[in-house]
């Protein structure tokens, strides 16, 4: 299973869309999953997605692999305030 934590306008894709509690979608993992494939399965439009994406607390992008049991954190395009130069996408190696 994968837990996807959704924020801002992306919360509408969770059954609990309340802005002051955790909005989490639990979904089955599929072989070869990436942030992009999970986002597509949830039906989140590309345009709604920002650059503050996390896999298990690591700064990620759409191509970052998602393992079974992972926690994703997805923030929308109007809610990205993290100073991106402090991080690097996980796929670029350790």
């Amino acid at each position: 299973m994968i837990d996807v934590h959704l924020y801002g306008k992306l919360r509408r894709f969770a059954s609990n869309g309340s802005p002051d509690s955790d909005s989490v979608v639990s979904m089955p993992h599929r072989e070869g999953d990436t942030v992009g494939s999970v986002v597509a399965r949830l039906g989140i439009p590309e345009a709604d997605l920002g650059a503050n994406l996390f896999v298990d607390g690591h700064y990620a992008d759409r191509r970052t692999p998602v393992a079974d049991g992972a926690r994703l954190g997805l923030f929308p395009d109007d809610m990205q305030l993290l100073y991106k130069w402090y991080f690097r996408p996980k796929e670029e190696g350790s």
Partner: peptide, 15 residues
């Protein structure tokens, strides 16, 4: 929209 406090959830996700 959210003020600087939008960072609470973002830093929390980042651990």
């Amino acid at each position: 929209s959210y003020g600087t406090a939008v960072l609470v959830n973002i830093l929390n996700e980042a651990g």
